[in-house]
Design a protein around this nucleic acid. Structure first.
Lengths: 236, 236
DNA sequence: GAAGCATATTCATCGGGTCAATTGGAGTCT
DNA sequence: AGACTCCAATTGACCCGATGAATATGCTTC
């Protein structure tokens, strides 16, 4: 095993063993390199790898710190994986999302605060205004879509679940989906599905929320793979 | 944005744009550093970050290559996240696994080859021999457990789904679970659940497979959180 | 043609250096 | 006292050059 990998594992182990706690500051590069018996450049490469894993964080002029190590942080490297496969197999990522998101939405039905339900309605209102315009800003639509879903799933009570869902459709995938919706009818259908989910949450009805979420993601999946949709949106 | 981050993004973008394809060799460090306008050490830190993301791979004396970029590779960094939270919130990871694994097991019921069904039976036979011994080798049990589940989920037809499930219970979590099973009855129950899943797969019955997988993961979850199990294993 | 061998190529690691951002305290003003 | 400005120390960011180790490649030999 190389020296750098050894340094990476040593630091990792120090964290697992609790010698380094979340938020704690590491020794300065020079000292830490000396303690690990490696050159400063080598240590820097090890630190860089741990930064990529969201385990460490550096601030020039200040020092190197252990991150919060929260699941959502550690899992958010997955987004790049989804982005890379946007051309080939985005369907596989969406399939996972279709399994998880209905469950998370159902769980959120009984947990999401009233204030955030109001906020969800505002997001949808804004999306409708955008769709009504002649020149549709797809970038804003993508952002609103992401906010809508992440606001819901973030209240499912399971940070890991929320993080995995979030990363199963990276920004590139979302952008591709919405850009592909040139048909005004497709945009309207998506909005109706969002409203249906919103109504189910307002009713605090997990089963309705689960079904509408499942149908929604399925619709997105089918619009991407080009397979025929069956029946369009439901209206409850 | 720092110089290193810029170099990382540039290489990433080259991959997304298809200028760098899976398996392709990168220019030598000296040339690539010059082309990106950074020092060699700086480029190495960028490359090291991409290695941590499983995007690049280096071989001393040969060169630096783009990996296969397969989803299972890009997603396997999650395992560390699960391991770090083994003490605090392993339950959240297991919950995600409980949502996904039943689905994957059901999907595998109609896809797994006969030969692998035989192999599954052999794994279970071996596990039973281990459990029958006086001095139980928990390490081998963990390995057999991992082989059993990954052999099934790898045939679910969705590499992303399989990879996510695999990473939702890292090796540390699995080891902790099996080490906690000091009660012989708990071991027996787990084995019975495995056999039940096996029988459902042999019958090519997705729904039975789904239910037994769900019950099994739930049992694991409850044994870890210490909540009371309800009724023990079913026998179909 | 196959096997060994020498050599070039390439990444791994090291040690040093300068630059830039942040911090914390000394000193000053209100 | 309290807030503010300013400066120096600290610390990571980034660069340069050099040596070592692993691999590939072309050559030699049989």
């Amino acid at each position: 095993m190389g020296v750098i990998e050894g340094a990476i594992d040593t630091i990792k182990q120090m964290i697992i063993d609790g010698k380094l706690r979340p938020g704690q500051k590491l020794p300065v590069e020079k000292d830490l390199a000396e303690r690990l018996g490696v050159a400063r450049n080598t240590l820097r490469e090890a630190v860089r790898a741990l930064i990529a894993m969201r385990v460490l964080q550096t601030r020039q002029g200040d020092g190197t710190y252990v991150t919060s190590l929260s699941p959502d942080l550690l899992l958010d490297g997955m987004g790049f994986a989804a982005d890379i496969h946007v051309a080939a197999g985005a369907g596989q990522f969406l399939h996972v999302r279709r399994i998880l998101e209905p469950e998370a939405t159902a769980m959120a039905a009984t947990r999401i605060p009233d204030a955030d339900l109001v906020r969800l309605g505002e997001l949808l209102d804004e999306a409708e205004r955008l769709v009504a315009e002649s020149e549709i800003d797809h970038g804003k639509l993508v952002a609103l879509d992401e906010d809508f879903h992440s606001l819901i799933t973030s209240h499912c009570g399971n940070a890991v679940l929320a993080a995995v869902i979030q990363n199963m459709s990276g920004r590139t995938v979302r952008a591709r989906i919405w850009r592909g919706m040139t048909d005004p009818e497709a945009l309207q259908r998506t909005l109706r599905e969002h409203w249906a989910i919103h109504r189910a949450l307002l009713a605090r009805d997990p089963e309705r929320a689960r079904l509408h979420a499942a149908l929604h993601v399925l619709g997105v999946e089918e619009s991407l793979t080009g397979s025929p949709t069956f029946g369009g949106a439901v209206d409850d």
